[in-house]
Simulated assay, not measured.
Amino acid sequence: MNQFYIRVCGVFGIIGGLILFAGDMLLYYDSISMSLKRNMGNASDLRIIASGVCALFATWFYMIGLAQVYVAFKPTKPIYKTGVLIFFGCILIAFGIVHGAFLTIATTSKLAIEHHLDLKQAALLSERINEIMRLIVYPFVAVLSFLFIYPVWKRRTLYPRGILFFFPLIPFLVEDLVTKYLPNHIWIIVKGGYLNIILTLFFIASSIALWNIEEFKSKA
Rank of each mutant, 00 (worst) to 15 (best):
I170A: 08
M133Q: 07
L144C: 08
I188F: 06
F21L: 10
Y29C: 06
F73I: 14
V71T: 14
I129V: 12
L158Y: 13
I14S: 10
I129A: 10
I129K: 02
F4R: 13
V11T: 15
N39Q: 13
R47Y: 14
R155D: 09
A106C: 05
Y62M: 05
V53D: 04
M40A: 02
E114Q: 08
F148L: 06
P151V: 11
F203L: 02
M40R: 07
F148P: 02
N2L: 02
I93M: 14
K191P: 13
F61G: 04
A106V: 07
V141F: 07
T200L: 04
L36Y: 12
L26E: 10
Y138G: 05
K120S: 04
F73R: 08
S126K: 02
H99K: 08
S145A: 13
L195Y: 14
V8I: 03
F87G: 04
R134P: 06
Y150G: 10
L85P: 00
H99P: 11
P171I: 09
F12D: 07
S31R: 14
I32W: 02
Y194R: 07
D45H: 13
L199W: 15
I170K: 07
D176E: 05
I14G: 06
G96L: 14
H185R: 15
N196D: 00
C54Y: 11
A58E: 14
N42D: 14
Y194S: 12
F167K: 13
L46C: 02
